[in-house]
């Protein structure tokens, strides 16, 4: 079964890398294992936040409930496949 994961970008005021391009790499690595949704959708347990810098503006303002975990990306240094693993795992991020 595909896991529903919400994607959230920071606003991108002065990003250190191309966030959209990096997400595409993560999306490719995830293939059919993930159904990407937005925060406006329901029934997702994990949120992938892609921020352009270490500040990661959206992360501090998001409410982390028991049924929701946040995987926060602040640069493009990690292997996208590794990020997918992290998204699919049930542990803490």
């Amino acid at each position: 079964m595909r896991k529903r994961i919400a994607l959230k970008y920071c606003g991108g005021c002065d990003p250190g890398f191309d966030r959209v391009e990096y997400f595409k790499k993560i999306q490719n690595a995830a293939g059919d294992l993930v159904e990407w949704v937005t925060l406006d959708d329901r029934d997702f347990a994990t949120v992938l936040v892609i921020s352009g810098c270490a500040t990661a503006c959206p992360v501090g303002k998001m409410v982390l409930t028991a049924c929701r975990r946040i995987v926060s990306i602040r640069d493009n240094k990690r292997d996208p496949a590794e990020i997918v693993q992290s998204l699919l795992s049930e542990g803490k991020s």
């Binding site: 970008y9 920071c10 606003g11 991108g12 966030r19 937005t38």
Partner: peptide, 8 residues
């Protein structure tokens, strides 16, 4: 654009 809506 999803990558900018947080600011715009």
């Amino acid at each position: 654009m999803p990558e900018h809506e947080d600011l715009l």
